[in-house]
Design a protein around this nucleic acid. Structure first.
Lengths: 118, 118
DNA sequence: CAGAATCCGGTCAGATACTG
DNA sequence: CAGTATCTGACCGGATTCTG
């Protein structure tokens, strides 16, 4: 990303991949869900709900579906009684680890800065 | 980020910095604005508006204010006639470069994957 | 347990027009 | 040029209830 004397048009090209990524991870919850699934090997609906603080069943359900469509998360139905459902991150989902780490690191530094001020 | 046998409580701790970061960069536009400002050395309102495709004056104005509050962007008023306004990314804003790069890289790979499928 | 269904208010954000 | 002002529909997302 060099600087100076660029046109909006050039800029738009550079921005496109960022927009694509944002489209997929948009919203308050998706990144958090992915983070949690990276943390656990596998996860039930209930454990997910407990781990992503504040999320409702409805939102969790909705977000999981969208993540499944984009193949970042997979859902396995195990034929027990009652049925067991397991959520797991896919290898493709794992590929977003750099994003999560960047967000995590920035958050840690940010907290230091905020606390340092007070 | 190790795996297995973690509790929701441990998980919440790991999630907090991510949540903090998300709070600040939340929304459709902030990351894009920051990206553009990383690309240019400095930028007028007009140029920003042209570079962040689809954004309205209202949104741009609102988002810039929020970014200013969080000290990611600075606004300089130059006393010409009519006044010139310059937006610039702050050093703190620059510190989010790793996030932007991670998003950019993922977007590039994602596009490859999507195109490869079709 | 793993969700679906319903209800509902709030705010987000787009379109458009206007101002100093 | 650098924004404000107003209006409006969309939809985000919370609370609650219900089901196989």
């Amino acid at each position: 990303m060099e600087k100076r004397y660029k046109t909006p048009k050039e800029c738009l090209g550079k921005l496109m991949p960022v927009r694509d990524t944002l489209d997929i991870f948009q919203g308050k919850w998706k990144i958090q869900i992915i983070s949690v699934l990276m943390y656990y090997d596998e996860c039930s609906f209930k454990l997910l709900k407990e781990s992503v603080k504040g999320i409702t069943s409805k939102m969790l359900s909705k977000e999981l579906k969208e993540l499944e469509v984009n193949q970042l998360v997979e859902r396995e139905v195990i034929d027990t009684r009652p049925v067991t459902i397991r959520y797991r991150i896919t290898p493709y989902g794992e590929s977003s680890r750099d994003i999560i780490i960047a967000l995590y690191n920035w958050g840690v530094e940010h907290r230091k800065k905020i606390i340092g001020k007070k």
